[in-house]
Design a binder for these strands. Sequence first.
DNA 1: AAAGACTGGGAAAAGGCTTTCGGTTGGAAC
DNA 2: GTTCCAACCGAAAGCCTTTTCCCAGTCTTT
Lengths: 371, 371
Amino acid sequence: MIRRATTENLFRASEISTTLAAMKPADPPKPASGPTRARAATLTDVARLAGVSVATASKALNGRSQVRAETRVRVQEAAERLAFRPNPLARSLLAGRTGTVGLLTSDLEGRFSIPILMGAEDAFGAGRAAVFLCDARGDSIREQHHVQALLERRVDGLIVVGSRTDPRPSLGRGLPVPVVYAYAPSSDTDEDLSIVPDSVGAGRMAVGHLLACGRSRIAHITGDVNYLAARERAEGAARAMGEAGLHLLEEPLYGNWSEGWGRAAATMLLDRHPDLDALLCGSDQIARGALDILRERGRTVPDEVAVMGFDNWHAVTDGARPSLTSVDHNLQEIGRVAAQALFQAIDGRMRRGVELQPGRVVIRASTVALG
Amino acid sequence: MIRRATTENLFRASEISTTLAAMKPADPPKPASGPTRARAATLTDVARLAGVSVATASKALNGRSQVRAETRVRVQEAAERLAFRPNPLARSLLAGRTGTVGLLTSDLEGRFSIPILMGAEDAFGAGRAAVFLCDARGDSIREQHHVQALLERRVDGLIVVGSRTDPRPSLGRGLPVPVVYAYAPSSDTDEDLSIVPDSVGAGRMAVGHLLACGRSRIAHITGDVNYLAARERAEGAARAMGEAGLHLLEEPLYGNWSEGWGRAAATMLLDRHPDLDALLCGSDQIARGALDILRERGRTVPDEVAVMGFDNWHAVTDGARPSLTSVDHNLQEIGRVAAQALFQAIDGRMRRGVELQPGRVVIRASTVALG
DNA sequence: AAAGACTGGGAAAAGGCTTTCGGTTGGAAC
DNA sequence: GTTCCAACCGAAAGCCTTTTCCCAGTCTTT
């Protein structure tokens, strides 16, 4: 059966939640008219089938030592037969730990959050913790709300993923569980742990690659000056030039992160420095714009001018002509490291401060050694 | 403090998990050396402070009728004072429902999953359910594994998000909780519910827009023929032409989803049909490639040739010259509808079959009325 | 042979909450 | 003065698992 959505079933989620406590106290809601499903086997069932007490059954299944081997086998077989799965609710009610963590993103749209989230999900999955995903959509009220909801659910810890590398307000020191900040560091650097990309290092690394290609007349176009990432990459680039006894052709050109700005800035630079032999662009999109202008002006890439970007965004780098060399920030690794640090913190070994994760240069066709 | 990652703390998550039950039965693990945190207030605390029994406290806070108004207020104030939050573990242990759902994606990288996930997360958040995120990375073994893990956690339902609109294997009929498939429909259309984009309708809609712009010599370049989405959009496009008493200039050109293919196909088409006045491209990236060729050939867009794509991927549409008209599949809405349907299913009102969600044309500068 | 040391196993408590059911009160009805 | 009925409240059971503690054997020691 194929049905097309009509207006009648296109209503919003807000209408779903069962009407909340009106003014008048109401008595038990209708007795769940849903189909009765077969009840899952409990430890009691297993114990009965194996002919032992629940205590023994528990010990047998959890590998405690006070059980005879033969009894253990009998219990295990019983558990197998009944497809018994211990109820994690009961288990964590007792243990105080739930084996869950909260992953709080500020905006899922941002393409930077996703790889981090993947890395974290991966690490947690391997460590047998489940991840609650919450998206605050850049709204701090909503964020606060989600934090409360997660704490009520007794998560064992939180990872807060930002969408920019600029410091963000800390969730505060009073939380009952450890928190790790990823990508966007917490402003409370003394107390909190943050895992962030090494932007200065990335800038340095990029220039290093261009220098290694024999380029020396290098200009830098980058994005919004209000982004710490832009300023730090520029700083790293300038330092790397300085250490080689060189200077950028001129001060970095700040603008925004768009292709349009890449085109505009590249046009200006080509007019002012017709002899430039490399263009370092603050993002792949800016680089993409610059590439378009270079082709229109008849400057061959990479022979006459080498071009590189940041972010290693495949959709952009691979479609470019020629394909674009770019600095990858290893975001997935940031997610993994954050998850691993959170595990440690939950175990009582909390690290603090800001930890920088190195990036790497991914070489494609837009850069090549001179001559 | 700022630290740079060194090899010693760059180890993998797999090393984290505490060594699993070796052959020899082992006794209780070390007694959690973590710092002791202030215990959260329980219902018992509230009851004591309010001078009532836990039973009354529970009834007062849950709006049951058997409580005097004055007593209720006293309990509420006590709860307030202690910042009491009911422990959801205890609550759902009793109720059988956890208020959690599993969101199973096949690949987080795919940019199609993300908006769906956002829509679902949004709807669930509004309905006060928490979302467990799991990424199967396109591996069915891993998927099975995650399903088991989610069921063990007693989720109330599952949403399975695919990365292509081609049907995918059903998780099966034996599951103890309802499942809704989003984007990729289940192959078991009789039993399962799937919410998918209306690709035929999208193709029809696109051609409709071009016809409305007064175009009639229209060609269609699209992606991989193995993708149902490609074939269905082409079908919709062909039908819309037929209904207008027209035909596409030639059969749809299938290739892949890249800019490179867009350039190659556009080149061929311009050679064969120099008089074409519109190019319908199966993805924004393909359209982007086509735009590049048109500009290089000196054909003005949109005056001479109108161009449009599918997916409404902002990063691509906005940077294009001129900005690209595209069909948006309303993926976020698909996520929302799926979440809402799952809620209903959990309440015992399960829908079945395949439900199509309509897309919409987002008009930008690459299409305009002729003359 | 008596005392101690293990071993295997069970009873019971704990964890926090909801719900059932029975008991108490005060007032209205007879 | 009894009977009945609400309204209100509390004791206790139940959800499912883990852990502590104790008991009954069995095996070593002197």
